[in-house]
Structure formats: structure tokens, C-alpha cells
Design a protein around this nucleic acid. Sequence first.
DNA 1: CTTGTTAATTCAACTGGATTGAGTTAATCA
DNA 2: TGATTAACTCAATCCAGTTGAATTAACAAG
Lengths: 391, 391
Amino acid sequence: MVVRLDQIVGANAERSRSHNRQLVLGHVRRAGQVGRAEIARASGLSTQAVSNIIADLEREGLLVEQGRLQGARGMPAIQYAVNPRGGFAFGIEIRPGAVFAVMLDLLGNTVFSHRCTLSSALPDAVTAKVLALRDLALSQTGVPADRILGAGVVVPGPFGTTSLKDEATELPGWAQIDMSAWFTRAFGLPAHVENDANAAAMAEHVSGAARELSHYAFLYFGTGLGLGLVSEGRLVRGAFGNAGEIGHVTMPTASGGVVLEQAVSRLSIARHLAGHGIDAPDSASLAQLYDQGCPALIDWLDQAALPLAHAVSLVENLFDPQAVILGGALPDTLIDHLIAAMPLDERSVANRPDRTTPRLLRGASGRMTAALGAASLIVNRTFTPQLAVAV
Amino acid sequence: MVVRLDQIVGANAERSRSHNRQLVLGHVRRAGQVGRAEIARASGLSTQAVSNIIADLEREGLLVEQGRLQGARGMPAIQYAVNPRGGFAFGIEIRPGAVFAVMLDLLGNTVFSHRCTLSSALPDAVTAKVLALRDLALSQTGVPADRILGAGVVVPGPFGTTSLKDEATELPGWAQIDMSAWFTRAFGLPAHVENDANAAAMAEHVSGAARELSHYAFLYFGTGLGLGLVSEGRLVRGAFGNAGEIGHVTMPTASGGVVLEQAVSRLSIARHLAGHGIDAPDSASLAQLYDQGCPALIDWLDQAALPLAHAVSLVENLFDPQAVILGGALPDTLIDHLIAAMPLDERSVANRPDRTTPRLLRGASGRMTAALGAASLIVNRTFTPQLAVAV
DNA sequence: CTTGTTAATTCAACTGGATTGAGTTAATCA
DNA sequence: TGATTAACTCAATCCAGTTGAATTAACAAG
């Protein structure tokens, strides 16, 4: 799997316009609804420029008028809001045994969601399955094909050949393929390829707990433990797209040290419960066990809280985020328990008297997190000026 | 100390031109020398646009013609290179007891360097001292004042009120001041305020080991241990400018865990040597001790290598950088010893068969690192398109 | 040597999109 | 009711990049 990096590109009239359109859209989304003048002030553009752009966006159905804002002096500002049905994003998560697909509208609402098994993870089989899912999504929602802005694809990392490569988690047959180009071609749409934790982090930005945040970290409970980092509203992907492999980090414990993923992950829960003769194959059964007060599970949670707190402390000290978000394939109740049980480091750059958000937040995206994140990559891009990061 | 964050701004003719100028300058710097056509291809601009921009830059003295490149078919391309004396950057490092000042030319060469003591770190005293240093730099080098592109300022972090705040390392009297605005005003020039590790990281990018890198991490031996992170050529500063506080992270050891800074820092060396009755107040004396094969020092180095290797592993797994660079206030020989003594984690995303640079590099900027970095912030900005990150 | 080919560069006309400044509209305030 | 305030529109202007044709300077082949 080849990863392509973005490159800065020169500005001309056309690209400037595209940049400004996305900037305006982004302002409207963040504000919920705003008038032209306020956007102009915030963006450094003239009101006339904003006016022209808004006219375009309204004609194309991306923005809708919301009436006038009253109560202040002067001519009341005509408010605009993002039209959720102005565009849609398709997202898929590919795993060795299954494919998840979602479609989101421009505000990040899920309008389609589906999972199916995957008998072969080879490129042709995956592509056929994924195109079928796209067609299903289109026909089931009635969304016209030209309203799809792009496709996000989540695949298990790490990308490229690394010593962490583990045949069990990698997809076979994809090693030499530039997945981004491959899916762009298959869909006839711009495609974004990302790992699960990064995508999940963007899901929180688009429609979850990080809507208001531009610097945050997302701890992702997948099979292992991943980390998605967002700085200045952009993913920190690393040189080869593999940033955030926090699961492989060794954590200090009283007995010397432990690899984080072995202490905190779905696999670690399963192992612990199996040791008590309990089988909990999915999130639902875990949630049920927790509701029943299963001692083995509570035991695991309290045991996992310490290494997890160390991970949080690590992330806080290294990134200085506005907040650390916990989410992924774990029931909300368990995440809340972990958050409550975690002893937060007092001596941390994150421990500020003037902070407005809690240091820890629970993710909002639930069990389709990664596929949701895949689509969120596209939604987010629609609102992000591209001049500095054209592909 | 208030930290201001950048904001994305709309594109218009003027800002597009500025963006494109910086893009062109950046291409020329990276290439050493290039012709118009190649820049046009790389930047996505038309040759005509590049031609116009180059004409401007040449007239202003930022670029110089270098003759034609022969040997190929077609009209030989006129080569251009950055004129080192086309612009200069002023950099200062403020510490509680001393001020360092440097001036760099556009290629990152040091043209002035000075240190002096500081009796008071209060705003007015610092400002007076720093302006005097600027005047000294101008008169000693004969550089005209209007060739100074900006001033970089390094101050001890962390910024703002955090639980890490330690009166000994903070500057008194600055708490409520927006330093960036303060120094912009004092110098009558754009000023950038940064912590030591981040600035040092940029120094490596401008004139050190990271010239060719766009994703890297810099481990900075200051009084404590800092970390500067660069992703896509830009500093990852964190929400409040305090990213990179790696010194406060707890490392696993056989005996439980240790705060990294206590095992690896100038203070830790001093403590260890003092325990053996040795006093080594500065870098020079450390270098001398090492040349003499001082057993206590070798002992410390070998003892520090393990926690440091853990730090490197941490950074590699969390950022996936092209390389990790070690530098700061430690003699080169000691850094080389540490690099050689560090057992690198085999299981890491950084352990790739296809890597072209070593996982660990020694920084090139020597003892004035932080002040150099301060100036490098300005040099770097001159070559970085600002449309996406206008202040 | 000439002639053809290739590729960089320049010239001049064109164009897209942002700005500017004057004018219009719709609200609040006194 | 009139003054004030602020958002918005119109039309002219301007900046900077693009386009396509023309020019220039090398190499290559006969």
C-alpha cells in the first residue's frame, strides 16, 4: 500500500476561488448559521467576494437561506446555513473478514449504513463488493450520483513494509498498490485512504465530540489500540501515514513495563474474560456484562485504567491537545467507566486552571466509527481550504 | 505569556502573489538552483507567472542568476539561486540569566552571534537589552535595517499557566503579556515566539540535519529534555504551544519507572558527576571529560541510553517521522556516544527496509541552537507559503 | 556546416476573481 | 419621525495568472 503525501501548490484565480469557497463553507458550518458580513470579517475577504461566493454556493444547493437575524442595529443580516443534502460522502471500512459502508450528508448525519462479510480481501473482490455497496447506498437513499463528493476508505495499518507488519491484520494482495489512486479510479471520485484511528478522529471532528476542537487526540479501541492526532484541524499522519501506533508503546508499571496494547484493547478484554470462563464476542455482550455488574469485567476495567492513564499523560505531554477523546469499538458505559477510573496526572501541561473543556471526552460515533470516519474525511475536506494542501 | 494561533485566511490577488513568491523561493532553496520551467512544473503555475515572480525577486535581490544549464536538448534553462544576502533574520534566546542573539542570512549562515548576561528578566529590561543587541548586530555586520525580515524569540516554556509552571524556569513579569505582539512592536518587525525545542527543530530544517526532511522529531537537550515535532514541514505546536514536553513523561525501567528528564538531561549529568566529585559547568568541560575517557561520564551515558531509546521508540511510534534528531546543549561526541549506545526498538513503524536515512541523526547546530532556531523560524517562514497559515 | 528538433523563455492579449466606493435597504434608537 | 447603524448590492477597476503565438538557444542528424 503506497501512501501519497500532499504538496503545496501555487495560487491562481481558479484555485483561489476554490480555496475561498471552502473557507466560506467552513465558517458557515462552524457557526451553524451566519451572515455575509460576519464571514467577510472572519475570512479577511471583502463582503462582495463573500456575497459572490455565497450566491454560487446557494445556486449549487450547498447553502440555504435561513431568514434574517433581528435584534441588532442596522440592516439585519441574512443568515445562511449548510444544506445537509447539498452533498454526500461515502465511507467504507475494509477488514480482512468484513466491509462496513456508510453514507453521510454534509452535516455528518448518517443516511445509509450497512455491513457485510467479505470472503476474499484481494483487490478485485474488494473493489466489486465496494462498488456494489455504493450502488446499494445510492438506490436505497435516492441520492443522485453527482451529489457524492468523494469516498473515504479505511484499511488496517500500518502502511508499507514495517517490522510491525503482521499478516493477520494486513490485507493480502494490496502491498504494491497505490490504494488512493486505485479507489479514485474505481469510484470515479476523489478517494482518501486512511487508517482506522485517524479516520475515527475525523469522525469526531465532523459530527462528534471534537466539533469545536482543532487540536485533539483520539484514542481508538480497535482490535488493538490506535491514536489519531489532529493539529490545527488537520491530521498528523507521519511521514508514511503510520503516526499514532500507541499500542506498541511500553508503559511503566510496578512490575517493570507492559506493552500498552496488551493491557488495553479488545483482545486484552477477551483474554481476561476467557480466563474467567466468559465469552463476549461483541460490543453488545460486553455492554450487557457491564450492566450486570460482571466482576471480571469491572476488574479488567480497573486494571486497564492505570496504563491508559499513562497513555493519556503521554499524549497530553507530547501534543498539548485541547482534549483527549476515547472511543471506538467499546460500549459507552465501559468508556465512561474507564474515564472515571483513570487517575489523571496532576503534573501535566494539560492541567490548566483556565481550561474550558474536560481533559477527557467520550467519543460520540459509536460502533461504525471507522467507516463513519472514512466518510468524515471527505466531509471535512469539503470544508477545508485546499490551497496549502492540494493533492 | 499569551500564545496566538494562526488562522486560515481568504485568497485575493495580493495574498496569492505573496503565497506564490514564497512557494517559488522555497523551490529554489530546496533545489539549490533551478530554472523557471522546472519551478513551474513543480508548483502548478504557468511559466509566465513564475517568470514574473522571479523578475520581482531578482529585482529585490532575493534571487540571483547563476548562468545557463547546458548539456540538454532545447534552450538551456537560466538557473536561479537564493541570494544569501537578500535578507536576514534576527534571533534571540532569552533565559533568566542570559540573552543569546544571532543573525542569519537567507541560507541560514550565521553572520552575527553574541551572548550577554541579563541582570533582570523583566519586560522592560529584556526589551532594552534585546534592542541594543539588534543595533549591535546591524552595526557589526553592516546589514541595512530594511533587510531584516523578522525576529524570532525563544523563551523558556511552558506557555500559560499549567501545573508544570516552575518559577525557576519561567520569566517573571511576562505572564499577562502577548509576547508576539510585544516584540513585533518593539522591533517594528514581525516577531515569532517559540519554545527552545521547537525553535531548535526549525534550525535543523533551515541549516542542519533536517534540510531534506519534512517529517521529523528533534530531541533537545536543554536544562531538561524537550521535543520539537515537525509534520509536513510545519511545527506541531499543540493547542497552547506546549507540545513536546517529553521530559515529564514516565519511562518504564526494571525498577518501575522514572521521569525521563531525571535520567536524561544536563541536570542529570551534573548530578551524576557531582556524586563522583566532578564539576562540569559547561559543554566544553563535558567534551573534555569525554575525551579523557572519564568513567563517571561514560557510566552516565550508558545509563541514559536506555530511557532515551524508550523516548525515541515512543516518538517513532507516535509520529512516524523520517528521522529522530538529537541535539542541543550537549557536545557532539556525547550525542554520538548516546546514538551508538542506544538499543533501537526492532518492532517499530520506523524499522522499514526501504528507509533511506538513518533512524537517528545528530543535530548540526551546536551550542547556540535555540537562538539559531529563533532566527530559523523567520528564515523558514520566508520560504513557506502563508495562504493557509496567515497570522 | 546546414537543417531539424527540442525546450526554455518572452510578448501581448485575455480572463477570472477580488477590491473599491457609492448607493440602497432595513432595522434600532432617540 | 428622523438619525444612526450596519448589511448588502451595483458597477467600475485592478491585480495577477493564463493562453497561445513568437523567439531564442542549445543539441542531433545528415
